[in-house]
């Protein structure tokens, strides 16, 4: 059965790539700066956040703007992908009602689209490293590892959200609050060290905490986290993906009655 799924994925990979290209084109159509916004957006946010917070964490965090930028870039990738994935089934209702397409294509496509956007915003990160004269370490080349973990995690979560969103539209409103809260529960604008003992415990079950720290370790601190961290990351991401696939498969035949 797994092989059959793989076969359909192969058959529809042209659709997958077409949809991603379509999303990219439509996102920037009729904006003068176009794709440059993927780079400008995180930079502008970085300036605002640094202006407000860098004084507060002056002693705990070196290079606050870069600290914020690396964390927020990865987190935004997750939040954008899962948000788009959540709406993906509802937004393709016209298509789902008329043509048979494996439905998991839609949330997966949105996550891959989010990944492409993430790669564009990495340009902003590199530019800022150069502007601040911060050394680009060789370990930076490993940036793709936490990025892939985040992608797999987002796919799993996105599938759950997209299925839930079909049945209960409340999920859409609820999730927008959850993402904001999650953003503050992850050390992005503040350093991990200022957290109290309880919150530190809490971080152990926050997958984004692991992915973000991993990302900063390889890009900023020239260190490679040990195998243990990799295993934790794999457990979080692959576990979520398997749960997402299972949940999606279980509910997908009823989508058409609710979209």
């Amino acid at each position: 059965m797994l092989e059959a799924n793989f076969q359909t994925l192969k058959r529809y990979r042209y659709l997958l790539s077409n949809l991603i290209v379509k999303d990219i084109k439509l996102k920037y159509r009729r904006s003068i700066l176009g794709i440059l916004w993927s780079v400008l957006n995180p930079l502008l946010m970085m300036i605002v956040i640094s202006a407000v917070f860098s004084n507060i964490f002056k002693f705990q965090v070196e290079n606050f703007p870069l600290y914020y930028l690396t964390g927020s870039t990865l987190f935004n990738f997750m939040s954008e992908s899962t948000n788009l994935a959540m709406m993906s089934i509802l937004n393709s209702r016209e298509l789902i009602k008329k043509i048979y397409i494996p439905k998991y294509i839609f949330p997966i496509e949105k996550c891959l689209f989010g990944f492409v956007n993430f790669l564009f915003s990495l340009i902003a990160v590199v530019v800022m490293f150069i502007v601040f004269g911060y050394p680009l370490h060789l370990t930076s080349l490993l940036f793709f590892i936490p990025a892939i973990y985040t992608l797999i995690f987002s796919m799993g979560l996105g599938m759950v959200l997209s299925a839930l969103g079909v049945f209960f539209r409340d999920v859409i409103h609820l999730y927008s609050v959850v993402v904001v809260a999650w953003n503050y529960f992850t050390p992005i604008v503040y350093p991990y060290e200022i957290l109290g003992e309880k919150m530190k415990m809490f971080m152990q079950i926050n997958p984004m905490y692991y992915f973000v720290s991993y990302f900063r370790d390889v890009t900023m601190y020239n260190t490679v986290p040990g195998v243990k961290i990799d295993l934790i990351c794999i457990a979080f991401s692959v576990g979520t993906l398997i749960f997402g696939l299972w949940f999606f498969k279980k509910t997908q035949d009823r989508f058409i009655l609710y979209v």
């Binding site: 042209y14 659709l15 077409n18 379509k22 084109k25 439509l26 016209e94 298509l95 008329k98 397409i101």
Partner: peptide, 24 residues
């Protein structure tokens, strides 16, 4: 079904073809 009206006809032809499961 599957046309995105913001896209041009040329783009839609390829998109619609892939929606129907045709290869590039």
């Amino acid at each position: 079904a599957g046309f995105d009206l913001d896209l041009t006809a040329r783009e839609n032809i390829y998109l619609n073809g892939s929606v129907l499961g045709f290869s590039k």
